[in-house]
Design a protein around this nucleic acid. Structure first.
Ligand SMILES: [Mn+2]
Ligand SMILES: [Mn+2]
Ligand SMILES: [Zn+2]
Ligand SMILES: [Zn+2]
Lengths: 152, 152
DNA sequence: TCTTAAATAATAATGGTTTTTGTTTAGTAT
DNA sequence: ATACTAAACAAAAACCATTATTATTTAAGA
């Protein structure tokens, strides 16, 4: 379940009874090869180049479909937006609490942590989400600049 | 930072320059003693009993304030709602993906392995979120009942 | 008690997401 | 190849949790 190529996705769509449409293929390619956990609108803006008449609703529908099929996970955030992650295996999302930048991290100990916790919980989870908050370089610079002068 | 009593909260509000109001005290008591990760509206509905004229906006403002003070964390979800968790230490939220029920779980080795991950990442996180998805008893029953007859 | 900046209640506005509706199309049967 | 039909689409409106605005009230210090 590591390398998720387009042939696999197409097979899964077919097997599940869904139609293969150009819009779906383009959305799948974009999101499944993404690394930065994009929003629905960010995907929509990119798709617009090839499909100038595509609807944002279609992007949302397709993302939900891929979620149902287990090909991605939806990460909800406190600012009431969702970001989509093609990495559904246990891993760490490193997130800047200021600007929202996200990147994946796969520490060796993460798998170990996961299996130990799963064993202690005495059930097999259907999914998981591991977030770690850390100010990115840009935001931590601004942060420190501000705290020099202003303070609460 | 374990037992968060009202005296500590009041001191923190004072020290940070915020006023002690009856509304704030009531909201703090409710959320900081809660176990089920309530939404802002659920807190609002409970507060209404004692403060019939309180505004939902006040609840949101107070929750954001407590978040700034580090007394709780806000958990955003894919259904575009937030739930508030007075437990800010590394722990596991066990979440039903169907009905949204949440309860805390503190595996013995969670904190220790969490710190090992932090060490491997080579930075000190300002926070974290560890979710595990598992259908609750009620929802897993319904789930299995449905999959007997209907199937995709 | 007086003063005033902060907090509150009420209300409107916001914006990401979902729903609705009419049109188009992928997959299949003829 | 053509016709058929349920599914998918685009466009637009609706939804709704949250946030912003504004007038009023109040906590806290002088
Ligand atoms: Mn990720
Ligand atoms: Mn929790
Ligand atoms: Zn940042
Ligand atoms: Zn449930």
């Amino acid at each position: 379940m590591m390398l998720m190529n387009m042939q696999h996705v197409i097979a899964k769509l077919r097997h599940s009874g869904y139609k293969i449409t150009p819009q779906r293929l383009e959305i799948c390619e974009l999101i499944l090869s993404s690394q930065n956990h994009p929003t629905a609108d960010q995907i929509y803006q990119k798709i617009l180049r090839k499909f100038p008449t595509i609807s944002l609703a279609t992007v949302y529908q397709t993302l939900h479909l891929l979620k149902e099929l287990g090909l991605l996970q939806e990460l909800g955030f406190a600012d009431m937006s969702s970001r989509y992650d093609p990495n559904t295996s246990p891993h760490v999302n490193v997130i800047c609490p200021k600007c929202g930048q996200i990147y994946d991290c796969e520490p060796k100990r993460a798998k170990e942590l996961w299996s130990q916790i799963a064993a202690e919980l005495r059930f097999k989870p259907v999914g998981q989400r591991l977030d770690v908050y850390k100010y990115c370089d840009k935001c931590s610079n601004i942060q420190s600049r501000n705290s020099e002068t202003k303070n609460r």
